[in-house]
Design a protein around this nucleic acid. Structure first.
Length: 244
DNA sequence: TGGCTGTACTG
DNA sequence: CAGTACA
DNA sequence: GCCA
Protein backbone atom coordinates (compact mmCIF):
# COMPACT_ATOMS: atom_id res chain seq x y z
CA UNK A 1 0.00 0.00 0.00
CA UNK A 2 1.11 3.51 -0.65
CA UNK A 3 1.31 6.40 1.74
CA UNK A 4 -1.69 8.65 1.64
CA UNK A 5 0.39 11.66 2.50
CA UNK A 6 3.52 11.01 0.56
CA UNK A 7 5.53 14.20 0.73
CA UNK A 8 8.00 15.26 -1.84
CA UNK A 9 10.93 16.94 -0.20
CA UNK A 10 12.42 17.94 -3.50
CA UNK A 11 14.25 21.22 -3.37
CA UNK A 12 13.11 21.98 -6.88
CA UNK A 13 9.45 21.22 -6.40
CA UNK A 14 6.58 23.62 -6.87
CA UNK A 15 7.06 26.63 -4.59
CA UNK A 16 4.29 27.13 -2.06
CA UNK A 17 4.00 30.63 -3.42
CA UNK A 18 2.90 29.57 -6.87
CA UNK A 19 1.28 32.18 -9.12
CA UNK A 20 -2.15 31.00 -7.99
CA UNK A 21 -1.28 31.97 -4.38
CA UNK A 22 -2.91 28.73 -3.27
CA UNK A 23 -1.29 27.14 -0.20
CA UNK A 24 -0.52 23.95 -2.03
CA UNK A 25 2.16 21.89 -0.31
CA UNK A 26 4.93 19.88 -1.86
CA UNK A 27 3.02 16.65 -2.38
CA UNK A 28 3.96 13.97 -4.83
CA UNK A 29 0.30 13.57 -5.73
CA UNK A 30 0.06 17.25 -6.68
CA UNK A 31 2.51 16.79 -9.51
CA UNK A 32 1.54 15.54 -12.93
CA UNK A 33 2.60 11.93 -13.34
CA UNK A 34 4.32 12.87 -16.58
CA UNK A 35 6.84 14.90 -14.59
CA UNK A 36 8.01 11.80 -12.76
CA UNK A 37 11.73 11.88 -13.22
CA UNK A 38 14.19 9.07 -12.79
CA UNK A 39 15.65 8.40 -9.39
CA UNK A 40 19.33 9.16 -9.86
CA UNK A 41 20.16 7.84 -6.41
CA UNK A 42 18.48 4.47 -6.54
CA UNK A 43 21.68 2.69 -5.52
CA UNK A 44 21.43 4.66 -2.28
CA UNK A 45 17.72 4.75 -1.64
CA UNK A 46 17.25 1.03 -2.15
CA UNK A 47 19.60 0.36 0.75
CA UNK A 48 18.17 3.06 3.00
CA UNK A 49 14.71 1.67 2.36
CA UNK A 50 15.78 -1.69 3.75
CA UNK A 51 16.91 -0.04 6.96
CA UNK A 52 13.82 2.15 7.14
CA UNK A 53 11.58 -0.88 6.89
CA UNK A 54 13.48 -2.68 9.61
CA UNK A 55 13.11 0.30 11.95
CA UNK A 56 9.42 0.60 11.15
CA UNK A 57 9.00 -3.07 12.04
CA UNK A 58 10.50 -2.46 15.46
CA UNK A 59 8.23 0.38 16.59
CA UNK A 60 10.96 2.93 15.95
CA UNK A 61 8.47 4.97 13.98
CA UNK A 62 10.22 8.31 14.30
CA UNK A 63 13.51 7.01 13.08
CA UNK A 64 11.64 5.43 10.19
CA UNK A 65 9.97 8.77 9.47
CA UNK A 66 13.35 10.44 9.29
CA UNK A 67 14.50 7.84 6.82
CA UNK A 68 11.34 8.24 4.76
CA UNK A 69 11.82 11.97 4.38
CA UNK A 70 15.48 11.57 3.52
CA UNK A 71 14.75 8.88 0.96
CA UNK A 72 12.09 11.03 -0.65
CA UNK A 73 14.51 13.92 -0.85
CA UNK A 74 17.14 11.71 -2.46
CA UNK A 75 14.70 10.35 -5.00
CA UNK A 76 13.79 13.79 -6.28
CA UNK A 77 17.30 15.16 -6.09
CA UNK A 78 18.34 16.28 -9.61
CA UNK A 79 21.82 14.71 -9.43
CA UNK A 80 23.48 11.54 -8.24
CA UNK A 81 24.91 12.33 -4.82
CA UNK A 82 28.62 11.55 -4.52
CA UNK A 83 29.90 13.33 -1.42
CA UNK A 84 29.05 13.69 2.28
CA UNK A 85 28.77 17.45 1.90
CA UNK A 86 26.43 17.17 -1.02
CA UNK A 87 24.22 14.78 0.92
CA UNK A 88 24.03 16.74 4.15
CA UNK A 89 23.18 19.91 2.25
CA UNK A 90 19.87 18.36 1.21
CA UNK A 91 16.95 19.29 3.50
CA UNK A 92 15.95 16.23 5.50
CA UNK A 93 19.44 14.73 5.46
CA UNK A 94 21.61 15.31 8.51
CA UNK A 95 25.04 14.13 9.53
CA UNK A 96 23.97 10.58 10.43
CA UNK A 97 22.31 9.86 7.09
CA UNK A 98 25.12 11.65 5.28
CA UNK A 99 27.54 9.20 6.91
CA UNK A 100 25.52 6.27 5.64
CA UNK A 101 25.13 7.75 2.18
CA UNK A 102 28.87 8.33 1.93
CA UNK A 103 29.52 4.74 2.97
CA UNK A 104 27.17 3.44 0.31
CA UNK A 105 28.68 5.64 -2.37
CA UNK A 106 32.22 4.61 -1.53
CA UNK A 107 31.83 0.93 -0.67
CA UNK A 108 28.60 -0.01 -2.35
CA UNK A 109 27.33 -1.39 0.93
CA UNK A 110 25.88 -0.33 4.27
CA UNK A 111 27.15 -2.46 7.16
CA UNK A 112 24.34 -1.22 9.40
CA UNK A 113 21.89 -3.20 7.30
CA UNK A 114 23.59 -6.42 8.32
CA UNK A 115 23.58 -5.52 12.00
CA UNK A 116 19.93 -4.58 12.00
CA UNK A 117 18.41 -7.03 9.51
CA UNK A 118 20.34 -10.27 9.65
CA UNK A 119 19.05 -11.48 13.01
CA UNK A 120 16.30 -14.06 13.09
CA UNK A 121 14.01 -11.81 15.09
CA UNK A 122 14.20 -9.05 12.49
CA UNK A 123 13.23 -11.48 9.76
CA UNK A 124 10.29 -12.82 11.75
CA UNK A 125 9.13 -9.29 12.56
CA UNK A 126 9.18 -8.51 8.85
CA UNK A 127 7.00 -11.52 8.08
CA UNK A 128 4.45 -10.60 10.74
CA UNK A 129 4.40 -6.89 9.88
CA UNK A 130 3.38 -7.80 6.36
CA UNK A 131 0.09 -9.16 7.64
CA UNK A 132 -2.53 -6.50 6.88
CA UNK A 133 -3.82 -5.32 10.25
CA UNK A 134 -0.68 -6.32 12.12
CA UNK A 135 1.73 -3.54 12.95
CA UNK A 136 4.93 -3.25 14.95
CA UNK A 137 3.24 -3.67 18.33
CA UNK A 138 1.31 -6.83 17.55
CA UNK A 139 4.23 -8.28 15.60
CA UNK A 140 6.45 -7.88 18.63
CA UNK A 141 3.79 -9.49 20.84
CA UNK A 142 3.76 -12.48 18.52
CA UNK A 143 7.53 -12.80 18.74
CA UNK A 144 7.31 -12.51 22.51
CA UNK A 145 4.83 -15.39 22.52
CA UNK A 146 7.35 -17.48 20.65
CA UNK A 147 5.63 -17.44 17.25
CA UNK A 148 8.07 -17.83 14.40
CA UNK A 149 5.99 -18.58 11.31
CA UNK A 150 2.70 -17.62 9.71
CA UNK A 151 1.55 -21.11 10.62
CA UNK A 152 2.16 -20.30 14.27
CA UNK A 153 0.04 -17.19 13.89
CA UNK A 154 -2.71 -19.09 12.07
CA UNK A 155 -3.00 -21.79 14.70
CA UNK A 156 -2.20 -19.96 17.93
CA UNK A 157 -2.81 -16.22 17.65
CA UNK A 158 -6.03 -14.41 18.44
CA UNK A 159 -6.75 -12.21 15.45
CA UNK A 160 -9.33 -9.50 14.94
CA UNK A 161 -11.37 -9.43 11.76
CA UNK A 162 -8.99 -7.31 9.74
CA UNK A 163 -6.03 -9.44 10.71
CA UNK A 164 -7.87 -12.62 9.77
CA UNK A 165 -8.44 -11.21 6.30
CA UNK A 166 -4.86 -10.05 6.15
CA UNK A 167 -3.53 -13.49 7.01
CA UNK A 168 -5.79 -15.41 4.66
CA UNK A 169 -4.79 -13.14 1.77
CA UNK A 170 -1.17 -12.72 2.90
CA UNK A 171 0.50 -13.26 -0.46
CA UNK A 172 -2.30 -11.59 -2.41
CA UNK A 173 -1.81 -8.35 -0.50
CA UNK A 174 1.95 -8.57 -0.91
CA UNK A 175 1.53 -8.94 -4.64
CA UNK A 176 1.60 -6.00 -7.01
CA UNK A 177 0.16 -5.71 -10.51
CA UNK A 178 1.57 -3.96 -13.56
CA UNK A 179 0.00 -0.49 -13.95
CA UNK A 180 -1.70 -1.61 -17.15
CA UNK A 181 -3.76 -4.04 -15.12
CA UNK A 182 -4.64 -1.31 -12.64
CA UNK A 183 -5.81 0.78 -15.59
CA UNK A 184 -8.04 -2.07 -16.77
CA UNK A 185 -9.61 -2.41 -13.35
CA UNK A 186 -10.14 1.33 -13.17
CA UNK A 187 -11.89 1.19 -16.52
CA UNK A 188 -14.06 -1.67 -15.32
CA UNK A 189 -15.13 0.40 -12.32
CA UNK A 190 -15.78 3.43 -14.53
CA UNK A 191 -17.91 1.48 -16.99
CA UNK A 192 -19.98 -0.09 -14.25
CA UNK A 193 -20.46 3.27 -12.56
CA UNK A 194 -21.57 5.02 -15.72
CA UNK A 195 -24.24 2.42 -16.29
CA UNK A 196 -26.03 4.07 -13.41
CA UNK A 197 -25.45 7.55 -14.73
CA UNK A 198 -23.13 8.51 -17.59
CA UNK A 199 -22.41 11.83 -15.89
CA UNK A 200 -20.41 10.29 -13.09
CA UNK A 201 -16.75 11.21 -13.10
CA UNK A 202 -14.31 8.43 -12.26
CA UNK A 203 -10.67 9.14 -11.55
CA UNK A 204 -8.14 6.47 -10.74
CA UNK A 205 -5.89 7.88 -8.04
CA UNK A 206 -3.26 6.52 -5.68
CA UNK A 207 -0.12 4.84 -6.94
CA UNK A 208 -1.55 4.64 -10.45
CA UNK A 209 -2.06 8.38 -10.67
CA UNK A 210 1.41 8.94 -9.29
CA UNK A 211 2.82 7.05 -12.25
CA UNK A 212 4.12 3.96 -10.41
CA UNK A 213 5.16 1.02 -12.57
CA UNK A 214 3.26 -1.40 -10.36
CA UNK A 215 0.22 -1.00 -8.13
CA UNK A 216 -0.77 -2.85 -4.97
CA UNK A 217 -4.38 -1.73 -5.23
CA UNK A 218 -6.62 0.49 -7.35
CA UNK A 219 -8.06 3.70 -5.91
CA UNK A 220 -11.01 5.14 -7.81
CA UNK A 221 -12.57 8.48 -6.92
CA UNK A 222 -16.21 8.72 -7.97
CA UNK A 223 -17.78 12.16 -8.17
CA UNK A 224 -20.49 14.10 -9.93
CA UNK A 225 -20.52 17.66 -11.16
CA UNK A 226 -23.72 18.49 -9.29
CA UNK A 227 -22.06 17.57 -6.01
CA UNK A 228 -24.73 15.24 -4.67
CA UNK A 229 -25.74 12.61 -7.22
CA UNK A 230 -22.90 10.36 -6.12
CA UNK A 231 -24.44 9.77 -2.70
CA UNK A 232 -25.24 6.12 -2.10
CA UNK A 233 -23.52 4.98 -5.28
CA UNK A 234 -20.93 2.85 -3.55
CA UNK A 235 -23.27 0.19 -2.21
CA UNK A 236 -25.12 -0.11 -5.51
CA UNK A 237 -21.85 -0.29 -7.39
CA UNK A 238 -20.58 -3.08 -5.15
CA UNK A 239 -23.78 -5.01 -5.71
CA UNK A 240 -23.39 -4.72 -9.47
CA UNK A 241 -19.73 -5.71 -9.41
CA UNK A 242 -20.39 -8.73 -7.20
CA UNK A 243 -23.19 -9.94 -9.44
CA UNK A 244 -20.96 -10.09 -12.51
C1' DT B 1 14.68 18.62 24.06
C1' DG B 2 10.48 17.55 22.00
C1' DG B 3 7.61 17.30 17.76
C1' DC B 4 7.14 14.91 13.59
C1' DT B 5 -0.44 13.65 9.76
C1' DG B 6 -5.09 12.62 10.08
C1' DT B 7 -8.51 9.06 10.49
C1' DA B 8 -11.00 4.73 11.65
C1' DC B 9 -11.40 0.70 14.17
C1' DT B 10 -10.98 -2.18 18.31
C1' DG B 11 -11.64 -3.55 23.01
C1' DC C 1 -10.83 6.58 25.71
C1' DA C 2 -6.25 4.75 24.64
C1' DG C 3 -3.84 1.96 21.66
C1' DT C 4 -3.08 0.40 17.12
C1' DA C 5 -2.72 0.34 12.21
C1' DC C 6 -3.34 2.37 7.83
C1' DA C 7 -2.87 5.52 3.63
C1' DG D 1 16.28 9.67 11.74
C1' DC D 2 15.86 15.42 11.10
C1' DC D 3 15.00 19.90 12.68
C1' DA D 4 13.74 24.32 15.26
Amino acid sequence: MEEAGERSTSNQSTPTTSPTKLPRGNWVCAKPSTSQSVNLNEHITEKLEVLMNAYKNTKDQWRALGYRKAIGALKSHPRAVTTWEEASAIPGIGSRLADKIAEIVQSGHLRKIDHVCQGEEAKILDIFNNIWGVGPTVAQEFVQLGYKTLEDVRTKAKLNKQQQIGLSHYYDFLDRMPRDEAAEIGKLIEDATKEFNPNFVCTTCGSFRRGKKTCGDVDVLISHLDGHSHKGILFKLLEKLHST
